[in-house]
Design a protein around this nucleic acid. Sequence first.
DNA 1: CTAATCTGACAATGTGTATTGTCAAAGCAT
DNA 2: ATGCTTTGACAATACACATTGTCAGATTAG
Lengths: 202, 202
Amino acid sequence: MTTQTSSPRRYRGSAIEARRAQRRQQLIDAACEVYGRNGYRHSSVKQVCDAAGLTQRYFYESFSHSDELLIACYEQAATALREEITGAAERASVDRAERGRAMLLAYFQALKARPLIANLLLVEIRGISPAVDKAIFRALQAMNRDLTRVVVRPDHQPDELLHAGVMGGVIHIALHWMASGYRQPTDVVANTAFKLSAAMHG
Amino acid sequence: MTTQTSSPRRYRGSAIEARRAQRRQQLIDAACEVYGRNGYRHSSVKQVCDAAGLTQRYFYESFSHSDELLIACYEQAATALREEITGAAERASVDRAERGRAMLLAYFQALKARPLIANLLLVEIRGISPAVDKAIFRALQAMNRDLTRVVVRPDHQPDELLHAGVMGGVIHIALHWMASGYRQPTDVVANTAFKLSAAMHG
DNA sequence: CTAATCTGACAATGTGTATTGTCAAAGCAT
DNA sequence: ATGCTTTGACAATACACATTGTCAGATTAG
């Protein structure tokens, strides 16, 4: 009688589910890199597998379509970004405006620190498929909730459309900034975005 | 001695260049329809040609890649939209803010009146190729110039990044509105966008 | 009418890629 | 050591589509 209950066999020290999960994660990390660099639609399954050091059969072990892998990449990156941003807000002062400014600064800092992820999150992701669009929508809504919770006064009725506009505006500022090769200083960009977000406080 | 100097031959009453131009236009109009409905990347050359009532050979007569046709569609639609918007601004009062509001209203009215064109202009166009991205960039800059000329005070130094943000915000508001099936009344949407654009007047 | 050219339908080719299948070598349990 | 599973490399298949080529019939000029 062995110690593990579930896995009938171990390879290289780990159980079958652990190996699968590891390979899945390898694929996701490699795909973030490849998709961010070449763009999703100019990347093939084979390229991703090569970058991950795995064979194509392992792609089909964890994902049924390329879309699924893309969504996994996106959600991992978006979640990490969200955590960075909310963390920055909590470390900032209690003033709502200052928290908003801190979130924006953290946002642009993160984009500059990982340009490939930024490209994946803001450029390559668009217009792939309805399933991907839904994932984007969910991620933006989650961010919107964070933002509302942190910067909007509790008594203030939130305007969904206006919030969407502010987020879209911030994203476009980021896109312009990225396209220019991150020319302007990060805090200047964050401040510009902050001006835009003032529409929410009114 | 015939009346026409250039064309060596006439078919169905028109010269060769005229026939070519007509077929080209047929292809553009059909492509706007097909791309707007199915999305650019889910449309084939054959589908567009069928919709235009032409054979594939005529596609290659006027365009060398699909991208070229897409760009032609986009530019035709964007130019028409721009003319509608600037026309509305000129018909409005001389007050800068009111002109801005009139432009926004005209923008959202146009999007609602031609949903397929709206889908092409704001959704399907994104992330196709560098050449298409350049066309988008040009069109947005042209709009930005219109906007600046009409609503910003002449003595006010324009902030490029902030303007990009406002335009991106307006576009996102439109996207949300479209995704909801144009739920909210057009003037309410335009007013929301107007609030956002207030960041420019500051 | 006749010859030249334009038109439209369709076949032929080429390419890139997803997806499935095969198989020998390596790794583990007993 | 031996038999079973897993792994990795690669071949085989399938498919969709762009792009080029062919050709008979329609259209026009002279």
